[in-house]
Design a protein around this nucleic acid. Structure first.
Lengths: 231, 231
DNA sequence: GACACAACGTATCACCGATACCGAACGACT
DNA sequence: AGTCGTTCGGTATCGGTGATACGTTGTGTC
């Protein structure tokens, strides 16, 4: 048997804490229960994690990383937008399949504080968004796009977690995802056909102010738009 | 002096707890600190609120209701969509001006649980969304619209609260709001002129499927739309 | 082989949520 | 009117928690 290093102890504590979290919920994560389950004395936790909050942060990051590595087949698909969709879905899937860890990451909010695991997730998202921007498909700043996606995704997952499983809206995540994407991506969304009239109406409503078209063109355009709108 | 009823005691406890929450943060809300600040014995809390969680729920609802009554001038404007916007802004404003209460409402998430204050906010939102639907301006179900708005709004506020004040995106809320509204509302938003190119792009993207225009008309229309889009 | 230093384990502190139990005040019934 | 039952408020305390002081043991170094 090789020497038992500090990193081993740390890993063992995190494993025990994660198991305890799944088995007994968040309230079961007392320093005593964790130290007992890991076969360690309470002070060891404080030496390794400094604080109970430090321990919780570490447990959250541990669960998150563990999930990520278990899904490591998620590589880049070459299409940055598709990667963004996958990232969203992976995020939601993590939240729903390991709600205790997700809540640990995002749930106990305190003003001005972000858990390291949440920051990690945010950084991953940002790098994907940056690739979308480099592909020329972003229509807002990387900063804003990342924030919008992150905030919305978090809200959706927390909402789903808080909703009893039977009452959940199965399509909420997808709807929110496409809604946000339609806002941040350059306009290449698929034509649904059904909302074509709305687009025509919207365009027609703002037509008066433009100087791009001549009066005659505008009159004819308006007529066509009305036909599309009434179709 | 009139008789000191139980409801008075309850109110006094909630006031003291709310003050304590603002002054010392959430960790300061111990049963002992609250009971001492309210001039009451610890068991009284359990008689009135049953539980510490019950107390926290009551404090959250107290702070939320107090904020609502302080902003009671927010009546119906007659325009349901405008009311929805105001409701969103009021929600965000509450979260940012009283983050401790907001976090109490939404922050300590637990799987399958929703705080009464959050349910109250959700019910208010749903009634507004129902009025939007009655006005014929909703494009998805009331249920889905309400969930989408609520989840997104919550995500935005929690994100803002977690972000240090100096780094916050001042327009994040408005962007998210309009993004969600654009998804759930039927297309009759006011023309701002500046997003005319987007409308032209949107229309052009869906143009191929329509049989309302002749080929020649479509070619000319596409040309005009490109000019508008590039303006 | 002795020593300095770091890691470990015991014991304990102050505090927390929660409750059992007792006494007093109040109202109802005879 | 007097007794009694019931409900409410107060004392004291229980088990448990986060955190740490301090003695002890092991280890690497000179």
């Amino acid at each position: 048997m090789v020497t038992k290093t500090a990193v081993d102890t740390r890993e063992r504590i995190l494993e025990a804490a994660a198991a305890l979290l799944v088995a007994e919920g968040r309230d079961g994560l007392s320093t005593r229960a964790v130290s007992a389950a890991a076969g360690v004395q309470p002070p060891a936790l404080y030496r390794l994690f400094g604080d109970k909050d430090g321990l919780l942060d570490a447990v959250a990051a541990y669960g998150f990383d563990e999930y990520l590595t278990s899904k490591r087949e998620l590589g880049s698909t070459g299409d940055a937008v598709e990667d963004l969709r996958r990232g969203w879905d992976l995020h939601v899937e993590f939240g729903l399949s390991r709600p205790e860890f997700y809540v640990l990451m995002y749930g106990d909010a305190r003003p001005g504080r972000t858990s390291p695991a949440a920051r990690e997730a945010e950084a991953m998202l940002r790098s994907i968004v940056e690739r979308v921007a480099q592909a020329g498909r972003l229509r807002v700043s990387v900063e804003r796009a990342a924030r919008l996606v992150h905030a919305t995704g978090m809200g959706v997952v927390l909402n789903l977690i808080a909703t009893p499983e039977a009452e959940r809206d199965a399509e909420l995540s997808e709807t929110a995802r496409e809604t946000v994407l339609s806002r941040i991506l350059a306009g290449n969304e698929e034509p649904t056909g059904s909302d074509l009239p709305e687009r025509a109406i919207a365009l027609r409503a703002g037509l008066d102010g433009t100087a791009v078209l001549t009066d005659a063109e505008r009159v004819l355009l308006a007529e066509w738009l009305d036909r599309i709108a009434d179709a």
